[in-house]
């Protein structure tokens, strides 16, 4: 555990540095409070709608795919470190695991979830 002492010191220094910089910024800068500064500026008009604009579903689908393959790598790392000791049976299990995930990937690709503006999704 003692080898993490440097990490603790690093975190402490980073925290103290961040707090000091924010505090110095609030203390040293000149602030003139004004109510007009807090309003939304939209070319002289009042704001029409919400500032939050809805995202596309494609972002969510890409995040799903990233999550799934992230977990796949998390399952592969123990194989590379110790699962190789279990021989061909372990390798067969690994290949079966990968094959099941490839089925899902092929489905997603064929469905057109990865294309942004292709005619298949239209």
């Amino acid at each position: 555990m003692i080898e993490y002492l440097g990490v603790i010191v690093y975190f402490m220094v980073a925290t103290v540095l961040g707090v000091v910089m924010f505090w110095a910024a609030t203390q040293c800068s000149s602030q003139r409070l004004d109510l007009e500064k807090l309003t939304a500026y939209e070319c002289g008009y009042d704001a029409f709608g919400e500032a939050r604009s809805p995202f596309d579903v494609g972002f969510y689908l890409v995040a799903i795919l990233f999550l799934v393959f992230d977990l796949e790598v998390a399952f592969l790392i123990p194989w590379a470190l110790g699962g190789v000791l279990s021989g061909w049976a372990g390798l067969a299990a690994l290949l079966l695991f990968l094959a099941v995930l490839v089925v899902g990937f092929v489905y997603e690709w064929g469905k057109g979830a990865l294309d942004w503006n292709s005619p298949e999704t239209l």
């Binding site: 799903i64 799934v68 099941v100 899902g104 469905k111």
Partner: peptide, 14 residues
């Protein structure tokens, strides 16, 4: 994981 992938695509992709 396969169920998660296929379910997410089949439910939300329009």
């Amino acid at each position: 994981l396969l169920v998660a992938m296929i379910g997410a695509v089949a439910l939300t992709l329009t």
